[in-house]
Every structure is written in structure tokens, then in C-alpha cells.
Amino acid sequence: MMDFRILKDRAANGMMFFLTLATLLLVVAMGVGLYLKASPILEDLSLGELLFSSKWLPGERKFGFLPFLMSTVWVTVFAVTMAVPIALLTAVYLTEYAKSGIRKYVFPALDILGGLPSIIYGIWGILLIIPWISTYLAPHFVETSTGYSLLAGGIVLGVMILPLLVSLFIEIFTSVPGELREASVSLGATKWQTTKSVVIRKTLPGIIAAVVLAVSRALGETIAVLMVCGSRIQVPKSVFDDCQPLPALIAAHYGEMVSVPLYDAALMFAALILFVVVLLFNIISRMILYRIEKTFF
């Protein structure tokens, strides 16, 4: 007869395997669920029409996602361009230059920045960034601006992805073995030259992967973007225009979607686009990051 303890071990094995599998299948379930819900609109309209038309008239069954796609792209580009240089410099400073005493103050600050909820960033944007844009910045360039704009969204998003970028960069930089730096310094290179041509060059794939990861984080941010980007649906032409990225579209209109035919399918299609893009970006960047981890250890 089999020992009860071994039986228990086997049972636990089965149960844990099941739990692991079930949580993993969540990815598949999400994709399938969103696809099924979005399929009515895919049958009704061609993919080209959905992605490249800018006519958004749910009442007339016209669903062109171009305004939302372009808004998403521009806000993200803006946020990343703002955040990457700051994050890169901060991470280099913390790993290559700063003493541990300085790190003791910066790390908690980054923790706080990373832990603050999206809604707090939104309120901050409204209290500080939007008045700043509408009273100080915009008058130099355009006639009137409420401040609720692509620029505001970009700035707020940029600050939001900053802690993620810094912590990823730090992780990548610390994985570079110290001997490589010493070799460079012993040839007479300065610290910055070492950083530039050894550390950064050696970890370039990792840096790119980290940026891709941050992009996918920025793509999905909802509430803050919803609060500061304005509400007019249009393809933004300048940084002072309103914009409405995909997540904001879902959050702003999910309440109306049950009453208008195909509207729910359209919003689920928006979620599906987000899901697919974020999934691809994440898989690619994680694979790169895993490979880097392996080469250095």
C-alpha cells in the first residue's frame, strides 16, 4: 500500500500543477474572450477601415480607430522621449557614480513614485501641469488652449514610467561585471567614457528591451490619461490638441456601449488591440532581458 504521505505529495503536485496552468491560461482566456466579443465588428467592417479611418460615429455604425491610435502613439512617443534620458542619466549616476548614502535617499523616492496610483498622477496633472500649459506655455504657440492636451498626457505619462525605467536600467547596469569597467579605466578612460563605451554598449539590447517594456506600460495607462488628455475625438495635429488614447476611449465610453449596437464590440476591439500590442512588446522584451541575465551570470 502506498504511504499516505507520498499520496499527499502526489495530490499536492497535481493541485499545484493545475493552479499554475490555470493562472497561465489566463493569458489565453483573455485573448480569446476579447476576440470573441470584438468579432461582430470585425465581421461588419474590414480591418483596414477600422484601423485607418478617422470617422468615429457610433450611432451610424462608423468606427474608425485612427484618432485613438494616433493619440496613443503620440502620447507614448512623447512620454518615452521625455522619460528615457532622465531615467538613463539617473540610473548611470546611481550605479556608477553615487555612494550608497545617496542611493539610500533616491531609492525610496523612486519607490514612492512607482507606487503612487494613476489617479494621483491625474490629479497632479490637473493641479500643476494643465494650468502651467494653459497660462505659461501655450500662449506662446497657439491662440487658446485649455491645457488638456497631448502635451499634458505626455508629461504625466513620462513621469509615471520613470520609476519603472530607472529600476530596469539599474538592474541591467549592475549585471555588467566590474572587471569590464576596471579594464576600461586601467586604459585611461574616464568614468563617463567607461560608462558610454563599456556599460551602455554592452547592455544596449537590455536598454532597448527596458524601453519597450516602458512603452507597453505607457500604452495601457488609463485614468491619468483620461483626466488630462481632453475629450475631443480627433487625430491630434499639434501637442496642444486634445487627444484620446485607446485606454481612455474604453474608460470614457464603457457606460454607453450597451445601448448602441456594435459599440460594445468596438470598445472590446480597442481592448483587443491593446492586449495584442502589449503582449507582443512584453514577450519580446522579456526574452531579451532573460537572455542578458543568462549571459552575465
Binding site: G220, I250, A271, V278, L279
Partner: peptide, 13 residues
């Protein structure tokens, strides 16, 4: 990857 999926997508799902 699941960690990276935005919360709005979880919400929509």
C-alpha cells in the same frame, strides 16, 4: 507578461 497587461484590459475582460 501578465504583469505587463494593463489593468483596463483586465477590466474589459
Amino acid at each position: 507578461v501578465l504583469f505587463g497587461i494593463p489593468s483596463i484590459v483586465y477590466g474589459a475582460f
